[in-house]
Design a protein around this nucleic acid. Structure first.
Length: 439
RNA sequence: CGGAGCGUGGCGCAGCCUGGUAGCGCACCUGGUUUGGGACCAGGGGGUCAGAGGUUCGAAUCCUCUCGCUCCGACCA
């Protein structure tokens, strides 16, 4: 993408309304624009990141055997009346009425809809296990939205739903999601800690929150330091195998959020391993058995000819929240430092003298070479001073910068800068391509 | 919903107390000089001062109401 043709409204000034660094940076880099309390327009740069995160989440869900679909944002009230949650959900549910005076709502989550889909089409235990997911906008009329996209009212969430014949199978599905989540967050450059969680209004008895540590996190969290060093299960994990060992490896450690915290248990950890910090919840998984299948009559026939309510779980990842969460974890005094996996562009190409024919020709060629190598490239060929170009590129945090100017051209090299380490090297373009590919 | 604060060009702010032709920095436009870490000079465009009532000869400024936003608390991906 040529910067002169792109839409990238960056700002030097820190917006007064933004209280935390990720929100400030998102506004300064022109990723989002606020429309109202907790409601945001995603501008091109922010939209790119959102889509990249969504894609990583999608790939890991697919790898774990989940199947993608798409459910609507606006739902009819009937299904919610059936499950009983139309009353239970309270004011957080945005209720609306259509022209025929029908009760509708903007979906805060999708258990009812998916259960309805399931009961309509699935009748036999032979179709199980089944895991269906989608990534869709949700609306929760929060009492107090805050911190930009971290607690918006409208937010993008990936939610998956598992269906199994028995509770034991259901727990196996839960374990698959547990491992898939660890891999997902790992790919996003995050250390996410699974923590025993309260099940809240969704219900059920088995639930974990996935928390990333950040000073600006909304909840106090406590865990064993050793947990932070556990590697993710890995992309070669066999999801058809028994994953209870992988899960147990991580659930034996002490890790709890504020509301589940047990000071006595925590004190049993050696002092130097006690981590007391703040965290951001980026994922939440539940196994809730027949909480919805029973009232909504979602049953399957068993091999014996009987009929039982299906065992369900639900698994959410806050995709739009992750944008803020990742920035909280990945920034420095100069701006954002994107992990390569989700950077809006992988390479920022800077032409130092766009008005100089030689420089411009070499830079244009480099642009084509980089694109051909498969990179997303933001090509700054604007006629601005070097300082503002460097600063802008640092601010938006692309992992690699390739700088092309008269000095390098004389020696047949480009300057490659790693945004995270700040390391600069003068190498031939081909070598730079290799280095970027290597990460 | 309880508590605190803020609404003045796109962004950051001053002006309000003590009423009298709306100002500064950034950004933007034009011309020129510049060009390896946010340049300089000259000229220029853009604001129903959140909205509605009221007081007054006169309101960004004083009074009343409404709306919006932010922060702290209880709730949550």
């Amino acid at each position: 993408m040529r910067l002169s043709r792109y839409f990238l409204p960056v700002s030097k000034d820190v917006p007064a309304d933004a209280a935390i660094v990720s929100h400030q940076l998102m506004l300064r880099t022109g990723m989002v624009r606020q429309n109202g309390a907790g409601i945001y327009t995603w501008l091109p740069l922010g939209h790119r990141v959102l889509q990249k995160i969504e894609q990583v989440v999608r790939e890991e869900m697919d790898r774990a055997g989940a199947i993608e679909m798409l459910m609507p944002t606006i739902q009819q009230a009937e299904l919610w009346q059936e499950s009983g949650r139309y009353e239970d959900y309270g004011k957080e549910m945005l209720r609306i009425t259509d022209r025929h005076d029908r009760d509708m709502l903007f979906g805060p989550t999708n258990e009812e809809l998916i259960t309805d889909v399931f009961r309509t089409y699935v009748k036999s235990y032979k179709a199980l296990p089944l895991n269906l997911y989608h990534t869709q906008w949700k609306f929760r009329d929060e009492i107090r939205p805050r911190f930009g996209v971290m607690r918006g009212r409208e937010f993008l969430m990936k939610d998956a739903y598992s269906f199994d014949l028995t509770e034991e199978d259901g727990r196996a599905s839960y374990n698959r999601m547990f491992c898939a989540y660890l891999n997902t967050f790992d790919r996003l450059g995050l250390t996410a800690i699974p923590m025993q969680a309260d099940t809240g209004p969704i219900g059920g008895d088995l639930s974990h929150e996935f928390i990333i540590l950040a000073e600006t996190g909304e909840s106090a969290v406590f865990c064993d330091k050793d947990m932070l060093d556990l590697p993710a299960p890995g992309l070669d994990l066999d999801f058809d195998s028994d994953l209870s060992g992988e899960v147990a490896k991580r659930t034996t450690y002490y890790a709890a959020t504020d509301e589940m915290h047990d000071e006595t248990e925590f004190a049993k950890i050696p002092q130097e391993r006690q981590v007391s910090a703040r965290g951001i919840e980026v994922g939440h998984i539940f196994f809730f058995g027949t909480k919805y299948s029973e009232p909504m009559n979602a049953t399957v026939q068993t091999a014996e000819g009987g009929s039982v309510p299906v065992q369900m779980g639900s698994y959410g990842i806050g995709v739009s929240r992750l944008v803020g969460g990742i920035i909280e974890a990945c920034h420095d005094e100069n701006g954002i430092v994107w992990p390569q996996s989700i950077a809006p562009f992988e390479v920022g190409l800077i032409s130092m003298r766009p008005k100089d024919e030689t420089v411009s020709k070499v830079a244009d060629e480099a642009y084509e070479t980089l694109k051909a190598a498969g990179f997303d490239v933001l090509y700054d060929e604007t006629d601005e001073r070097p300082g503002s170009k460097f600063n802008r590129m640092d601010l938006i945090g692309l992992p690699w910068q390739i700088i092309i100017g008269p000095r390098g051209i004389e020696n047949g090299v480009v300057e490659l800068k790693n945004r995270k380490s700040g390391e600069k090297s003068e190498v031939a373009l081909e070598k730079a391509v290799e280095m970027v590919k290597a990460g």
